[in-house]
């Protein structure tokens, strides 16, 4: 599904290298987790994959089902099926959450040559999915993420993912800021979407989320590279011992 090779990325405005030759392959239908110390470049990876400005790719490639992501506009990547649940979801005053969702869903359908959803069908679908995530009607009416609590913002990200049904979902610390019950809701939301044709890349600092969303593969990222890859037990090791042992072992 996602194939990243030797990816090197620096900041556009500064002489600062953040990703330093990153290799990562996520197979179709699998759930991969990335853990790693603060500042190791996890969010940067997610931004570069989704096409945010401000970064310069100096080497390497990233393919989504064989298509070169790095040359595309963010909206083209989204239409191809890439989705990023943001670590810090953005507030957009003046744009209603519903309008935002409908615009996004229909833009993607249009880009894929599908017909737009009728207002009625769209509403039915949003309501059902919002209900599963315990997002009430009021939150749907309010401007995008404005005045939402941290946990509400994260649930809103998962609602967008559920509506857009992407192929490749990247979740950047979707568990941070969630209470225990919300974490379960989010995990259920993700698990409901798990399917043979859909892959996940879950960035997290904690084992807790991975208790609910059982990953197939766990990667450790440090200083702009994947330094170790293993099974779910790797996450447990981090939870218990931190990164010191792992980093010492690979250096």
């Amino acid at each position: 599904m996602l194939e990243i090779k030797g990816l090197k990325v620096k900041l556009e405005d500064e002489d600062k290298q953040i990703l330093k030759g990153l290799d990562l392959t996520v197979e179709t239908g699998k759930v991969h987790a990335i853990m790693g110390p603060n500042g190791s470049g996890k969010s940067t990876l997610s931004y570069v994959l989704s096409g945010k400005d401000g970064y310069e790719v100096t080497d390497g490639s990233a393919l989504l089902e064989g298509d070169d992501l790095l040359d595309m506009d963010p909206e083209e990547r989204a239409a191809l099926g890439l989705f990023l649940a943001f670590q810090y979801p953005v507030e957009i005053p003046g744009v209603g959450n519903m309008t935002f969702l409908r615009t996004a869903v229909n833009a993607q359908r249009k880009a894929r040559g599908q017909e737009e959803l009728s207002a009625g069908d769209f509403l039915k679908e949003v309501r059902a999915k919002a209900k599963d995530l315990k997002i009430d009607a009021d939150m749907l009416k309010r401007p995008v993420n404005v005045g939402f609590s941290g946990g509400e913002k994260k649930r809103n990200e998962i609602l967008q993912m559920a509506m857009l049904t992407p192929k490749m979902c990247i979740l950047d610390e979707t568990d941070s800021g969630l209470d225990v019950d919300a974490m379960k809701l989010v995990a259920e939301g993700v698990n409901a979407l798990r399917s043979e044709g859909r892959s996940f890349l879950v960035i997290t600092h904690y084992q807790r989320l991975l208790d609910h969303i059982k990953p197939d593969v766990v990667h450790i990222m440090a200083d702009g590279k994947i330094v170790k890859t293993g099974g779910p037990e790797l996450a447990l090791e981090v939870e218990n011992n931190g990164y010191a042992d792992i980093l010492a072992e690979v250096s």
Partner: peptide
Amino acid sequence: ETALFYLRSRGVPMNVARNLLTLSFMA
């Protein structure tokens, strides 16, 4: 720019996203 990227990352084309944000500015 942050809001613009957020919209585009959801598949909303650049022009549509800009106009949506411009309208929201006038709201």
